[in-house]
């Protein structure tokens, strides 16, 4: 027996003054913080753009407003190897970080039980030690006479006979330093997966590996995407690892920006470099996300 009761209309929604007052409070709350970000994040980017178009005055370190697009040409023609190295090094480092981080994130999400919280603290703990010092510590670990280098040398695995001051050291440092940025998003994605799904896959005749490939991995993809971006972006702009662990031939675009800004005082070219980096990253990210969205990535 379905019910009856025809619904009578006639009621109207009133948007009162309350809504407007609430919006005003919101703007008041936003104002100081947003103004700060506007003033010290957006305006500097604009300023960076104008600086990248300035032209020299003849006096070193002093420039005048202009439309010197040639700065961009100089930046690219002089520093394209650094750009290429940046993206190759940080790309390899990101993949390495993913391979290293995934088992740990998986372990914490599915196997750690009551130790979960403690393990998460331990994952973040490296943040509490100085970035520079823990990078520098790799000089000790990878030292020429050290255990790792001599073992690998004994096996004739190192083409240059050493690790320190080679791209391998730079990549090692990069992949190590941004590991927490990879582990945490991976963990967040894995933790949301119902462990019963894995059991279900096993129940439905999937081998552990197939179960992983068909169930866990696809479901963890959002974490993989977030983690790789959070690792790749800071790594591609980094110059600490390249400076402390690499040789002068291993310099990245971060080094180029730093040197032009702080030593050569060639502000326009340095700004152009920053701007190109700023532009390439979103482009790469866009392509990557598009691919990650399809099955090409899997």
């Amino acid at each position: 027996m379905p019910a009856l009761a025809p619904v009578a209309g006639g009621a109207k929604v009133s948007v009162g003054a309350g809504v407007q007052r609430r919006a005003r409070t919101a703007y008041l709350l936003l104002l100081p913080g947003i103004a700060w970000l506007g003033l010290f994040f957006v305006v500097p980017l604009v300023s960076l753009f104008f600086t990248s178009l300035q032209s020299p005055t003849g006096t070193p370190g002093v420039y005048q407003p202009g439309f010197e697009a040639a700065n961009y040409l100089t930046a690219i023609s002089d520093y394209w190897p650094q750009f290429v190295k940046s993206f190759i090094y940080s790309g390899i480092a990101t993949v390495l970080a993913l391979v290293i981080a995934y088992p740990l994130a998986y372990f914490i999400a599915f196997k750690a039980g009551k130790w979960r919280a403690l393990l998460l603290v331990l994952v973040v703990a490296p943040f509490f030690a100085s970035f520079l010092l823990r990078t520098y510590a790799w000089r000790t670990i990878l030292a020429d006479e050290g255990f790792i280098t001599s073992t690998l040398n004994a096996l004739h695995l190192l083409p240059e006979g050493r690790i320190l001051n080679t791209p391998i050291a730079v990549i090692t440092g990069l992949s190590y330093n941004f590991l927490p940025f990879m582990i945490l998003p991976l963990y967040a994605a894995l933790e949301r997966i119902d462990p019963r799904l894995i059991e279900a896959a096993g129940d439905l005749y999937a081998s552990p590996f197939t179960g992983f490939r068909k169930v866990v991995w696809p479901l963890s993809l959002p974490g993989v995407v977030a983690g790789t971006l959070l690792t790749f972006i800071p790594a591609s702009g980094d110059y600490i690892n390249a400076t402390l662990l690499g040789s002068p031939q291993d310099r990245m675009v971060g080094n180029a920006i730093q040197i032009n800004f702080l030593q050569f005082r060639d502000y326009p070219v340095a700004s152009a470099l920053s701007f190109i980096l700023m532009a390439i990253i979103p482009a790469l990210v866009f392509v990557y996300i598009r691919r990650a969205g399809t099955e090409d990535l899997v």
Binding site: F41, L48, I233, P234, G237, G254, I257, L277, M278
Partner: peptide, 16 residues
């Protein structure tokens, strides 16, 4: 700001 490399953040502020 979280998705911008630190060199860019640092250099742009310096430019300002």
């Amino acid at each position: 700001p979280m998705a911008t490399p630190e060199v860019v953040l640092g250099s742009s502020l310096l430019a300002l």
